Lab assay of single mutants.
Amino acid sequence: DYEVGESVTVMDGPFATLPATISEVNAEQQKLKVLVSIFGRETPVELTFGQVSKI
């Protein structure tokens, strides 16, 4: 299970290999909103559970 505030690594898509912090969890739809730090700015990205891995 994923929790808000948890650190994960993006495994898929254009942000693969980047660390991210979970900002929202939708367990019903198996989706997460995460904040990816790009060029010093936090960018919100919506991903599925399968696109991230716990650190």
Rank of each mutant, 00 (worst) to 15 (best):
D1M: 15
D1T: 14
D1G: 13
D1R: 12
D1V: 13
Y2V: 03
Y2T: 00
Y2I: 03
Y2L: 05
Y2Q: 01
Y2S: 01
E3V: 14
E3P: 03
E3C: 11
E3G: 07
E3Y: 15
E3L: 12
E3F: 13
E3R: 14
E3D: 08
E3N: 11
E3I: 13
V4G: 02
V4W: 04
V4R: 06
V4A: 06
V4Y: 04
V4N: 04
G5F: 04
G5L: 03
G5V: 01
G5Y: 04
G5C: 06
G5K: 03
G5T: 02
G5D: 04
E6K: 05
E6M: 14
E6F: 06
E6G: 08
E6I: 06
E6R: 05
S7W: 15
S7Q: 14
S7I: 15
S7L: 15
V8F: 02
V8A: 02
V8P: 00
V8H: 01
V8W: 02
V8R: 01
T9L: 15
T9P: 01
T9H: 08
T9M: 15
T9C: 12
T9E: 07
T9K: 08
T9N: 07
V10M: 05
V10K: 00
V10P: 02
V10N: 00
V10T: 02
V10L: 05
V10S: 01
V10F: 03
V10H: 01
M11G: 04
M11C: 10
M11H: 06
M11A: 07
M11N: 10
M11Q: 07
D12V: 15
D12C: 14
D12L: 09
D12W: 14
D12R: 09
D12K: 09
D12F: 15
D12M: 12
D12G: 08
D12A: 13
G13L: 02
G13D: 02
G13T: 02
G13K: 02
G13I: 02
P14H: 06
P14R: 08
P14G: 04
P14Q: 08
P14Y: 07
P14W: 07
P14K: 07
F15P: 00
F15S: 02
F15G: 02
F15R: 02
F15M: 05
F15Y: 14
F15Q: 02
F15T: 02
A16V: 08
A16M: 08
A16C: 08
A16F: 05
A16T: 07
A16L: 05
A16W: 05
A16E: 06
A16S: 08
A16R: 12
T17A: 09
T17F: 13
L18N: 06
L18I: 06
L18D: 02
L18M: 12
L18R: 09
L18C: 11
L18Y: 14
L18W: 14
P19S: 15
P19F: 14
P19M: 15
P19C: 14
P19H: 14
P19Y: 14
A20H: 02
A20T: 02
A20W: 02
T21R: 12
T21F: 08
T21Q: 08
T21Y: 09
T21S: 06
T21H: 06
T21M: 10
T21E: 06
T21W: 10
T21A: 05
I22Y: 01
I22G: 00
I22S: 01
I22F: 01
I22T: 01
I22K: 00
I22C: 03
S23A: 13
S23H: 10
S23G: 06
S23Q: 14
S23P: 01
E24N: 07
E24F: 11
E24T: 07
E24P: 00
E24Y: 11
V25Y: 04
V25E: 01
V25W: 03
V25H: 02
V25P: 01
V25L: 06
V25R: 03
V25Q: 02
N26E: 05
N26R: 07
N26Q: 08
N26V: 07
N26Y: 14
N26K: 07
A27P: 10
A27K: 13
A27H: 14
A27G: 09
A27M: 13
A27Y: 15
A27N: 13
E28S: 11
E28M: 11
E28P: 10
Q29V: 08
Q29T: 13
Q29M: 11
Q29K: 10
Q29W: 08
Q29E: 12
Q29A: 12
Q30S: 09
Q30F: 09
Q30R: 14
Q30E: 08
Q30Y: 08
Q30A: 08
Q30T: 06
K31A: 06
K31Q: 08
K31E: 05
K31T: 14
K31F: 08
L32A: 01
L32G: 00
L32E: 00
L32W: 01
L32H: 00
L32R: 00
L32Q: 00
L32F: 04
L32C: 05
L32I: 08
L32P: 00
K33V: 15
K33F: 08
K33W: 14
K33E: 05
V34E: 00
V34Y: 01
V34F: 01
V34M: 03
V34K: 00
V34C: 09
V34W: 01
V34L: 08
L35C: 09
L35P: 00
L35N: 08
L35F: 09
L35S: 06
L35H: 07
L35I: 14
L35T: 09
V36K: 00
V36I: 13
V36G: 01
S37Q: 12
S37A: 09
S37N: 12
S37E: 09
S37H: 13
I38E: 06
I38F: 11
I38C: 10
I38T: 06
I38S: 07
I38G: 07
I38P: 04
I38A: 09
F39M: 12
F39C: 13
F39S: 10
F39L: 11
F39Y: 10
F39R: 10
G40T: 04
G40S: 04
G40Q: 05
G40V: 03
G40I: 03
G40Y: 04
R41Q: 11
R41H: 11
R41G: 09
R41N: 10
E42H: 08
E42L: 14
E42R: 06
E42T: 10
T43D: 06
T43E: 13
T43G: 05
T43Q: 12
T43N: 07
T43S: 08
T43H: 13
P44I: 15
P44M: 15
P44H: 14
P44F: 15
V45Y: 07
V45M: 08
V45H: 05
V45I: 13
V45N: 02
V45K: 03
V45A: 07
E46R: 05
E46A: 06
E46T: 10
E46K: 04
E46H: 07
E46G: 04
E46C: 10
E46F: 09
E46D: 08
E46L: 08
L47W: 01
L47C: 05
T48M: 11
T48Q: 09
T48I: 06
T48E: 10
T48P: 06
T48V: 07
T48K: 09
T48C: 10
F49E: 02
F49H: 03
F49T: 03
F49N: 03
G50V: 09
G50C: 09
G50N: 12
G50L: 12
G50P: 06
Q51N: 05
Q51V: 03
Q51W: 04
Q51L: 04
Q51P: 01
Q51I: 03
Q51K: 04
Q51M: 08
V52Q: 00
V52N: 00
V52W: 02
V52P: 00
V52F: 02
V52K: 00
S53E: 11
S53R: 13
S53D: 06
S53I: 11
S53P: 01
S53V: 11
K54Q: 05
K54Y: 06
K54I: 06
K54M: 05
I55H: 10
I55Y: 10
I55K: 11
I55R: 12
I55V: 12
